[in-house]
């Protein structure tokens, strides 16, 4: 692999290899020196055109634990607001002898665009592009699921919430299918589902009670308040009433079901505090695993393996 842009084109072996490699990185956290020298002397740029705390900081920490030098570019305060194009910004960074770009951008396809216009020795990681993909998030979710459930073959997985705007959900669905999940359900109001989503091989539910029945994994999606300016929903209150994950609804799923959320969570909008902080929630584990999974992907790209 030279770039990591989407989970869509990857094989089961490639996905499994990433998860296995991440396993070896998880125990670096527990040592006196929380670092391995793998990417010593490499320079990585975090190029974030969109706000992010978790993803940006876990990428930064992952790079540092691999001993790479990392540069955080704050786009709001940089040259693009002065009218410089994406490509010009890129050329300038390239001239600083960078080895890897991690990019988040509001436009779908931005990471792929970058990968096609960049010098051949540079790797690109997609940290979220528009509504298209967020593959490292999907991989850390797969890692979290595998940790809790060992394998994917018998799993029923429900993805609940705003699938229309969610790049995370798209990447998850591709990864879950490739890894062989038994059944993938999506649960959302009609206004928050993309047209013909069933073509991705998912079962569609408009009622959360029916959708959650007997599932092993529940993935809640964030209601993207900043994208709700249109008339997609009557109110947040009504959304919680109809689609929010409460303890009563969680009880409909399998007894040992896990609850996941890519964060940041809106308490009382898509999930109740009781569930988010409850013992079936693995939301904070997802964050910790995110570092190991990103270390795995970065080192596999740097080693071109």
């Amino acid at each position: 692999m030279q770039h990591f842009l989407t989970t869509e084109s990857l094989t089961k072996d490639q996905l499994t290899n990433i998860l296995d490699t991440a396993e070896s990185f998880t125990n670096v956290d527990g040592r006196t020196v929380k670092k391995v020298p793998l990417l010593r002397g490499k320079t990585i740029v975090n190029l974030f055109f969109e706000a992010s705390t978790r993803t940006r900081s876990t990428f930064e920490l992952a790079a540092k634990r691999l001993s790479a030098d990392i540069l955080n570019i704050n786009i709001n305060a940089s040259a693009t607001v002065k009218g410089e194009s994406l490509l010009d910004t890129l050329r300038n960074l390239e001239a600083m002898h960078v080895d890897m770009f991690i990019i988040r951008h509001q436009d779908s396809g931005a990471a792929e665009f970058l990968s096609r216009h960049i010098s051949p020795h540079i790797s690109v990681i997609n940290a979220g592009d528009g509504r298209h993909a967020h593959p490292t998030q999907a991989m850390l979710d797969m890692y979290t699921i595998r940790k809790a459930k060992q394998n994917f073959e018998h799993l029923k997985v429900a993805i609940v919430g705003d699938l229309l705007h969610s790049r995370v959900a798209r990447s998850q669905i591709h990864a879950l299918r490739t890894l062989g999940a038994n059944e993938i359900r999506v649960i959302a109001p009609r206004t928050l589902l993309p047209a013909r989503i069933e073509n991705l091989g998912v079962k569609v539910f408009h009622q959360i009670e029916a959708g959650l029945k007997d599932v092993d994994v529940i993935i809640m999606l964030r209601l993207q308040k900043e994208r709700m300016l249109g008339a997609l929903l009557p109110s947040e209150h009504e959304y919680f009433h109809l689609f929010g994950l409460t303890q009563e609804r969680l009880a409909l799923a399998a007894k040992d079901a896990i609850v996941m959320h890519p964060g940041p969570i809106n308490r009382g909008v898509e999930i109740s505090s009781e569930v988010a902080d409850g013992k079936q929630s693995v939301i904070l584990e997802q964050v910790s695993y995110g570092i190991a999974v990103r270390m795995a992907i970065m080192s596999m790209l740097a080693g071109n393996s």
Partner: peptide
Amino acid sequence: SFYRDDFSRLGLNPEVKPSSI
């Protein structure tokens, strides 16, 4: 595997497993 001096030539060993002390 994470400490090899031929990483830049050979890449990451795909068979890497966790260390445990």
